[in-house]
Amino acid sequence: ELVLALYDYQEKSPREVTMKKGDILTLLNSTNKDWWKVEVNDRQGFVPASYVKKLD
């Protein structure tokens, strides 16, 4: 499943990933309501769920 980055996000820990507004990311896990695991540029990590939106 793919998600769209709604905002820029700068990683604050090694478990997170940086994304730019408009990026298309692969959603790996959305079981946590606050932090979703995504893959971007061959890196996996977490981003705030409120910063991304699922693409239909």
Rank of each mutant, 00 (worst) to 15 (best):
K37Q: 12
L25Q: 00
V40P: 00
D34Y: 15
V52R: 02
Y51K: 07
A5T: 03
S13N: 12
E11D: 05
R43M: 07
E1A: 13
E39W: 10
L27R: 00
Y9C: 02
A5K: 01
W36H: 03
L55K: 05
Q44T: 11
Y7P: 00
D56R: 12
L4I: 15
K53C: 15
P48V: 02
K20M: 09
Q10I: 14
D56K: 12
G22E: 02
M19V: 09
K54M: 11
D56E: 13
D56P: 14
E1T: 14
R15Y: 12
L28V: 12
A5D: 01
P14R: 09
E11V: 06
V40D: 10
W35N: 02
D42L: 10
E39T: 10
L2N: 06
K12N: 10
V40Q: 15
L4Q: 12
F46L: 08
V38I: 08
K53M: 15
N41S: 11
L27Y: 02
M19T: 03
D23L: 06
K54G: 05
V40N: 15
S30Q: 10
G22C: 10
T18N: 07
A49K: 06
K20F: 12
N41Q: 13
L55A: 05
D34M: 14
L25D: 00
K12M: 11
F46K: 02
D23F: 05
E11Q: 14
T31L: 10
L2G: 03
V52N: 00
D34Q: 11
V40K: 15
N32Q: 10
K37N: 07
K12F: 06
T26F: 13
M19K: 00
K33L: 09
L25F: 07
P48C: 04
E39P: 00
G45T: 02
Y7A: 10
L2P: 06
T18Y: 04
K33P: 14
M19D: 01
G22A: 03
R15W: 15
Y7T: 07
D34W: 15
V40H: 15
N29Q: 10
V3E: 01
S50T: 10
S30G: 12
D56I: 12
S13G: 13
K12C: 11
A49C: 07
E11S: 15
R15I: 12
R15H: 13
A5F: 01
R15G: 14
T18S: 15
S50K: 14
W35P: 01
D23I: 05
L6S: 03
A49S: 13
L25A: 08
W35K: 02
E11R: 14
P14C: 11
I24A: 03
F46D: 04
L2H: 10
Y7L: 10
R43S: 06
E1D: 11
T26N: 10
L27Q: 00
L25H: 04
D8I: 02
Y7G: 05
D56T: 12
V40Y: 14
E39I: 12
L55R: 04
W35R: 03
K53L: 13
W36A: 04
E1C: 15
S13C: 10
T18P: 07
Y9G: 01
V47N: 00
Q44H: 08
T31I: 09
K53V: 15
W36V: 07
Q44W: 08
G22I: 01
T31D: 15
Y7S: 08
Y51S: 09
V3L: 14
V47P: 00
S50W: 10
L2S: 08
Y9T: 00
L25R: 01
G22D: 05
Q10D: 14
L25Y: 11
A5R: 02
Q10N: 14
G22P: 01
Y51L: 11
N41C: 13
K20W: 11
V47E: 00
W36M: 04
K21D: 02
S30W: 10
Y7Q: 11
Q44L: 07
Y51Q: 05
T26K: 15
E16A: 07
K33M: 11
Y51H: 11
L2T: 09
G22N: 06
K33S: 12
L25G: 13
A5E: 01
K21M: 08
E1H: 13
F46Y: 15
L55S: 05
V38G: 01
T26L: 15
K12P: 04
D23M: 15
K12E: 08
Y51F: 13
P48E: 02
T31F: 09
F46N: 04
Y51W: 06
V17R: 02
S30Y: 08
E16G: 13
L28F: 04
M19H: 01
L6D: 01
L4F: 09
P14Y: 10
E11Y: 05
S13L: 09
K20R: 14
A49H: 03
V40C: 11
L55P: 04
K37Y: 15
K21A: 13
L6W: 04
K21Q: 09
Q10C: 11
G45K: 02
T31Y: 10
N41A: 13
L6K: 05
K21H: 06
L27S: 02
V17N: 03
V47S: 00
W35A: 02
I24R: 06
Q10W: 13
S50L: 10
R43G: 04
L55D: 04
K53I: 15
R43T: 08
K37A: 08
P14M: 09
V52D: 01
P48H: 03
A49Q: 06
W35T: 02
Y7F: 14
K54F: 10
N29S: 13
Y7H: 11
Y51M: 12
W36Q: 01
S50P: 07
L6V: 07
L2E: 06
P14V: 10
A5M: 02
G22H: 05
D42T: 10
Q44P: 05
V47L: 02
K33V: 11
I24T: 07
S50C: 14
L55E: 04
S13F: 07
V52H: 01
L28D: 01
I24N: 02
R43N: 06
K12D: 06
T31K: 11
W35F: 07
V52I: 08
T26R: 15
N29A: 09
V40G: 13
F46M: 08
L6G: 02
V17Q: 03
Y7N: 08
S30T: 10
L28Q: 04
F46A: 02
T18W: 05
V3K: 00
G45E: 01
I24G: 00
L25K: 00
V17W: 06
P48Y: 03
D8P: 06
G45Q: 01
W35Q: 03
G45C: 03
Y7W: 10
I24F: 06
L25I: 07
Y9W: 11
R15P: 05
L55H: 06
N32M: 09
K12S: 11
S13I: 05
Y7K: 14
N29V: 08
D34L: 14
M19Y: 02
Y51I: 06
G45M: 05
G22V: 01
T18K: 04
K20Q: 10
V47I: 08
V40A: 15
Y9K: 01
P14T: 09
D42F: 12
S50E: 09
I24W: 05
I24H: 05
R43I: 07
D23K: 04
L27D: 00
Q10F: 14
T18F: 05
N29E: 15
K37M: 15
Y9H: 04
S13D: 11
S30N: 09
Y7R: 15
T18M: 04
T26M: 14
K54Q: 08
L27H: 02
S50M: 11
Y51R: 06
E16R: 05
R15A: 12
V3H: 04
D23T: 09
P48A: 02
P48G: 01
Y51T: 07
D34V: 14
E1Q: 15
S30R: 09
V38T: 00
R15C: 15
L25T: 00
D42C: 14
A49W: 03
L55G: 04
D34I: 14
N29F: 07
N41F: 14
D8K: 03
W35I: 02
V17Y: 04
S13T: 12
Q10P: 06
E16M: 06
E11T: 08
W35E: 04
